Amino acid sequence: MARNVTIAQVAEQAKVSKSTVSQFLNKRYEYMSESTRQRIEAAIEELNYHPNIIARSLKQKSTYTVGVIVANILHSFSTQILRAIENNFNDNGFHIIICNADDEPEKERNYIEMLLAKQVDGLIIFPTGGNLDLYEQMKQRNFPVVFMDRKIDGLEIDTVMLDNHQAAKLAVDAFVESDYNQISIITTSIIRNTSPRVERIEGYKLALEEHGLPVRPEYIRTADAEQIQGVLKELFALQEPPEAILAGNDIVLIEVLKYMKDHQLKIPKDVAVIGIDEVSFASFYSPPLTVVTQPTIEMANKATELLLAQINSKNKTARTAIHRLHPSLIKRSSC
């Protein structure tokens, strides 16, 4: 069985000290000549050296690993955020472990416990809201944690999320500007008071009131994804069906578009549509879809910055805050 190559062997091959090899491995090149770097690189390649991550972790008391628990990886928003978070942590020398909770608190609990057992240096969580005791324990232990997309009332944990009231307002304003007054909103289930969904409904109501339009309860619908086709059937069976539909997220938008196609309804002639969250096909769908976008890269950058600050901070009692980023409307032809 081949023995593991050591830093000492790399140093001897490259004719440098072990500390110089260590600096190279940690990407600290400031006091290292180009020829030294090249010799170390050549020695590593010749000897087929691989750093001992476990030994490094024990020595530096860090695993250089963070966990990300996403509520539902099917959302285009989630995959865009994850890609940006992974890039950010890779640039900072960290690996990430991605877990998908499927909006199930028990699954989220299992992942949190598993990641803590693996001694990750911190967590970014899109919280289900169903594990308050675990969130509180991490907070009390000063364990580095950042919430993404959803806030948990009563917990002082750094949180990065969208200004959801503004997102709904941008959509309602666009509908009204195009002379649509009978406006419906559909979101996925709010059974656990998932903050983006609740806040988008609140923003929708406030925007209607600002325009002097009535808030009609029959136009406000929430349901699990598999029930949305039935919700749409009920909406269009109303004596006054909506002229416009605000889809609260990309999963709802896809269900709305399926219904329109299946029932030969033309967008925007029969009903106008705006979705919150950009989707890959929005610009070339027929007609191209108006959407409210989230600044996913900026949100990922902020979450990375906040978690790294906690990981590196000696002051574990730093002030926490909710950081809300601003949405944008991309006007196309669906309203």
Results as ranks from 00 to 15, higher is better:
Ile54Phe: 07
Gly154Tyr: 00
Ile53Arg: 13
Val145Cys: 11
Lys118Pro: 15
Ile54Lys: 03
Asp102Asn: 14
Gln60Trp: 03
Asn88Arg: 12
Ser78Ala: 13
Glu86Phe: 01
Ala167Cys: 10
Arg141Met: 06
Phe147Leu: 01
Gln119Trp: 01
Gly67Glu: 00
Asn52Cys: 01
Pro105Val: 09
Ile85Gly: 09
Met138Ala: 04
Glu106Tyr: 09
Gly67Ala: 02
Gln137Trp: 03
Ile73Val: 14
Phe175Ser: 06
Ser76Gln: 10
Thr63Gln: 06
His50Pro: 13
Val66Leu: 05
Ala174Glu: 10
Asn90Ala: 15
Ser62Asp: 10
Asn90Phe: 14
Ser57Ala: 13
Asn131Val: 13
Gln137Pro: 14
Ile97Arg: 00
Pro127Gln: 11
Asp103Trp: 09
Leu82Asp: 07
Asn110Pro: 11
Phe77Arg: 02
Val172Leu: 03
Cys99Trp: 00
Asp149Ser: 08
Ile157Gln: 01
Asn48Thr: 15
Tyr64Ile: 06
Phe126Glu: 15
Glu86Thr: 11
Ile97Tyr: 00
Phe147Ile: 02
Arg83Thr: 15
Phe147Thr: 03
Ile124Asn: 03
Lys151His: 15
Lys169Ser: 12
Phe143Tyr: 02
Ala168Thr: 13
Gly129Asp: 10
His165Ile: 11
Glu136Lys: 11
Ile73Ser: 08
Met138Asn: 02
Arg109Asp: 11
Phe126Lys: 07
Glu104Trp: 06
Ala55Arg: 07
Met138Ile: 04
His165Glu: 12
Val68Ile: 09
Lys151Pro: 15
Leu155Glu: 13
His75Val: 12
His95Ile: 13
Pro144Trp: 06
Leu170Glu: 03
Pro127Tyr: 10
Ser62His: 04
Glu104Ala: 14
Thr128Phe: 06
Val160Ser: 06
Gln140Ser: 12
Ala171Asp: 03
Thr159Glu: 00
Arg150Asn: 10
Leu132Lys: 06
Gln80Ile: 13
Arg56Met: 01
Phe94Gln: 04
Lys118His: 14
Leu134Glu: 11
Ala168Asn: 08
Val120Phe: 00
Gly154Cys: 03
Arg83Glu: 11
Glu156Trp: 05
Leu134Met: 07
Thr79Ala: 12
Ala167Leu: 04
Ser76Ile: 12
Ile85Asp: 04
Met138Leu: 08
Tyr135Met: 04
Thr65Val: 10
Leu170Phe: 03
Pro51Glu: 02
Lys118Ala: 15
His165Thr: 14
Asp173Ile: 03
Pro51Phe: 00
Met161Trp: 04
His50Trp: 07
Met161Tyr: 06
Asp102Cys: 14
Arg56Tyr: 02
Glu156Asp: 15
Leu162Phe: 05
Asn92Val: 00
Asp158Ala: 11
Gly154Ala: 04
Thr159Ser: 00
Asn52Thr: 01
Val160Trp: 01
Asp121Pro: 06
Phe143Asp: 03
Gly122Thr: 00
Ala101Arg: 02
Glu113Tyr: 11
Val70Arg: 05
Arg83Gly: 14
Ala167Thr: 08
Ser76Pro: 10
Gly129Gln: 06
Leu132Ser: 12
Asn142Gln: 09
Ala101Ser: 15
Asn100Ile: 08
Phe126Asp: 15
Asp121Val: 02
Ser76Cys: 09
Asp149Tyr: 02
Ile69Ser: 11
Tyr135His: 03
Thr65Ile: 07
Glu108Pro: 14
Lys59Trp: 01
Gly67Asp: 04
Lys118Arg: 15
Asp158Gln: 07
Val160Asn: 04
Val68Pro: 05
Phe175Met: 08
